[in-house]
Design a protein around this nucleic acid. Structure first.
Lengths: 242, 242
DNA sequence: TAGTGGTCTAGACCACAAA
DNA sequence: TTGTGGTCTAGACCACTAA
């Protein structure tokens, strides 16, 4: 309940996690008022800046809203924790209450095609690691994922793991590659015959197509991802601000 | 160039706007280093907290990245200003370089259908203002928008304007209704015949469907919006963090 | 009027990167 | 070693809400 002042984890982050936990567990329901800033200062013996830094993070995540003169309140729908975050397929599926599974369709090194090279901002022909996976949820096909990684930043990534079982993300982290920012394009397309076959839908069925470029902490694009989801089985959630 | 200390606009916000402007104008290009915090403190004669508050906003927007020990840098692609923001159709189309146009298909008051009532968190039968519009860009149909508003929060909204010409958003603002937060669900669907006809595509063509619920400053859901876009003419942009 | 969050100051020590 | 951003403190005054 109290903060650990010896830990390397910043105080404001510990406080953020405690408050976040209590909101998500439902200790405070939607519309409830949180302790005032002064109460939090007294309860945890920290400065107001530290308290506000923790609250800023919650505000940013959409979990609370602040109203001058009134107080700080839990927002109406306790929002999906993953909105606006990069989430792995496995994590995503579990949050949706589905049992995830993966089939690796292919795995190879190849020189970057022009379009992908441009998206990643590298020279055409630069060596990429390519992984193609079919994702299933509850035993039924859900999506096809094509991942292209800058191979010089994660050498030997393909041989290291069975990516049907262990997340690619973790293997990258072990090589010191953390994907912290991404931008993506979302489209609706009609399924071409080959994809339709893999996804077990009729040719022409609507698919949600996402192209994502992810960058590491130094802001260098590392991964190009193309996913197509069955339109009848997948919905994307998203938050906006005015 | 200097900050206005008499203005009601907070110093950190003035500083944020100045820096943002210089980034978007290209004074600093992608990868360039911004002035250090100490330089900004000296240049504008403000405290470090104020500088950091301005930089936090830019970080939040994805325009800069900070690296301890190195400095603060403009991120690679100066990202779309609208990503993650609620943008009006008109604004959106203009940013994409298209000439927007609108045709009002219908405009009425009606009791809330069960599904929409639930989405808005009101009793079924509560009076809603419904506006159905066809949006065109460059003369070609692009999307169909169905807007449902809680009528008691914006009485008489339908009679006030010609919503083929003036933005609904502005009319709402004049009634003191500001939509500051929203969440949406994004799907891919096959066009049913009626929509296909309005959008001038073949029945079954892939459409991007968005359902959005927007809330005011008090976190009360005010608007339910359903838009379907032609898949071949519309791409959604989106930013994520790790 | 009392209490809330919004803004701002002027310090401090730290971890990390680069020279 | 120097300079960067990361964290933290202890104050202050303000605008707004609600009683």
């Amino acid at each position: 309940m109290t903060l650990n002042r010896i830990s390397k984890v910043p105080l404001y982050h510990q406080l953020y996690e405690q408050l976040r936990g209590r909101i998500l567990r439902g200790d405070w329901g939607p519309g409830d008022m949180l302790p005032t800033e002064n109460e939090l200062i007294a309860a945890h013996d920290v400065s107001r800046n530290t308290v506000r830094q923790a609250l800023d993070a919650l505000l940013n995540e959409g979990l609370i809203s602040r109203q001058r003169g009134r107080g700080t309140f839990v927002t109406r729908p306790p929002l999906e924790a993953n909105a606006g975050r990069i989430v792995s397929f496995t994590e995503d599926a579990r949050q949706r209450g589905l049992i995830p599974a993966t089939r690796v369709l292919s795995s190879e090194l190849l020189p970057a095609p022009a379009a992908i090279a441009e998206a990643l901002g590298v020279a055409p022909g630069e060596e990429l690691a390519h992984l193609r996976r079919l994702r299933l949820a509850g035993g039924e096909p859900l999506s096809i994922e094509d991942t292209y990684l800058l191979h010089r930043l994660c050498p030997g990534i393909l041989g290291q793991e069975d990516y049907a079982r262990s997340p690619l993300r973790e293997a990258l982290a072990r090589q010191g590659v953390y994907l912290v920012r991404a931008h993506q394009k979302i489209r609706a397309i009609n399924a071409p015959p080959d994809m339709a076959h893999l996804l077990a839908v009729a040719p022409g069925a609507a698919l949600l197509s996402i192209e994502r470029i992810s960058s590491n902490e130094q802001d260098v694009p590392v991964e190009y991802l193309r996913v197509v989801y069955r339109g009848d089985r997948y919905t994307l959630y998203n938050e906006l601000r005015g």
